[in-house]
Computed example of a mutant assay.
Amino acid sequence: MATGQVKNNYEVTDKQVSKIETSSTKSTEDIANYIKDNFKTDGDKIRAVFYWTASNISYDVENMFAVNFNESKEDKINKALKNRKGVCINYAEVFNDIANKVGIESVVIEGYTKQNGFTDYISHAWCGAKIEGKWFVFDPTWGSGSISGGKFIKKINNYYFKADPSKIITSHMPFDYLWQFLNYPITNQEFYNNNFVINKTKPNFDFEAEIEKYNSLSY
């Protein structure tokens, strides 16, 4: 988990979402209802989704390599809400489910990540959400804190909130290039080689149109 920080301009939203009663956080539906009742704009709603998820779930260091392929999406969400712990897929599923329930188009993205110039050997999960007509990247796991000395240190990192796809691509590489949200996606080899220069000699990729096609096949 990287540790770069950016200024937080959402103090009011963060303070308000922190007031939610514990009894109202046992399901993503309850959390979503609180957010819809207290925030009007998609910008404030998605901030509330991110802040609640990153603040209330701690990274489960002991089980960071444990993978249960039989777990459903609902199982991953319920486990995180019950134990207030999880790994990246738990954070991502919780964020995604709340976002969808407050009326924001959101997806779970899986792929590779890179820290300090080196690609991690285990996969990672994060999210993309469409805010005011534009796609942004959200990583509630890396945004919740970092691991130091084998222990999770809770500290909200706003770099991973509403990240620009053209910037976050230097550390987050989706398995499916559709979720790069870029008109000139980079290749896996370019990612490995730290070559992030936009190459406009490539064919223009209309990812917005492709996402619409994807959504039409998903329902």
Rank of each mutant, 00 (worst) to 15 (best):
Y112I: 01
P140C: 13
K130F: 10
G111H: 05
H172Q: 13
G143T: 07
N78I: 02
T113A: 03
W142A: 12
S146I: 02
F152G: 10
I122N: 07
G117W: 09
H124Y: 10
G143R: 12
W135C: 14
H124N: 11
Y160K: 04
E132Q: 14
A163Y: 02
N100Q: 03
K162P: 02
H172N: 09
T113V: 11
D164Q: 09
G117V: 07
M173A: 04
I153R: 12
Q115V: 12
T141L: 00
K79A: 11
V107Q: 11
K114C: 05
V102Q: 07
I109P: 03
V87S: 09
E132N: 15
F161V: 00
I169N: 06
F138R: 14
F118D: 06
F136H: 15
N100W: 03
N157H: 14
A80C: 03
T113W: 13
V94K: 07
G86Q: 09
N78E: 07
N78V: 01
N116H: 11
I131L: 11
F161G: 05
S146F: 13
G145P: 07
K114R: 12
N96Q: 09
I104E: 08
S106K: 08
C127W: 07
C88S: 10
F95I: 06
K85C: 13
F118R: 11
L81R: 05
Y160H: 10
K167A: 09
Y159P: 03
S123L: 15
K154W: 08
F95K: 07
I104Y: 00
R84Y: 14
S148D: 14
H172F: 08
M173N: 09
W142R: 11
C88L: 04
G86R: 02
Y112A: 03
I168A: 02
T141H: 01
G128V: 13
K114V: 00
V102E: 07
S148Y: 12
K79C: 01
N100H: 07
K130V: 15
I147C: 12
G103D: 09
V102S: 03
I104G: 03
A163L: 02
I89E: 06
I169Q: 05
K114N: 13
Q115S: 12
S146P: 07
F136G: 04
C88Y: 02
